[in-house]
Design a protein around this nucleic acid. Structure first.
Length: 107
DNA sequence: CTGGTGACCATTA
DNA sequence: TTAATGGCCACCA
């Protein structure tokens, strides 16, 4: 399996997300030095090696929702894992203002 | 090489 | 508020 350098950088950033917090694909891409490549971040999660110590479940889309197609088993698992960490879902969405990592700088 | 796909996103209507 | 649109780009047949 060919693993690109971009994947490694993305995974390294995802590892930094603290328990009980979440980040978005776009944020992860930006923090990985790959601005505008949110889709690549999603691809990197999809292609995670089994058993990798990467908290993939703490990455959601910009709307604060689980972005894995419901037909995939990991979709329900992601929500379960997050709730177990204290992340609150409200109508299928997470309040990013409260759980997003890193915190948005005041603008 | 070309074209289709996707665990995305900001903008516009 | 939701829905469509265009941009993004690695991967694969």
């Amino acid at each position: 399996v060919k693993i690109s350098d971009s994947y490694r950088r993305i995974w390294a950033v995802v590892k930094k997300i603290p328990r009980g917090r979440v980040s978005t694909y776009g944020e992860i891409a930006r923090l990985s030095g790959l601005p505008g490549q949110a889709r690549l971040a999603g691809y990197a999660m999809f292609n995670l090696p089994e058993g990798a110590s990467v908290p993939w479940h703490r990455v959601v889309n910009a709307k604060g929702m689980v972005s894995i197609p419901p037909r995939r088993a990991s979709s329900a698992r992601q929500r379960k894992l997050l709730e177990a960490e204290g992340v609150v879902f409200r109508g299928g969405r997470i309040d990013l203002a409260k759980h997003l990592w890193p915190r948005r700088a005041a603008r």
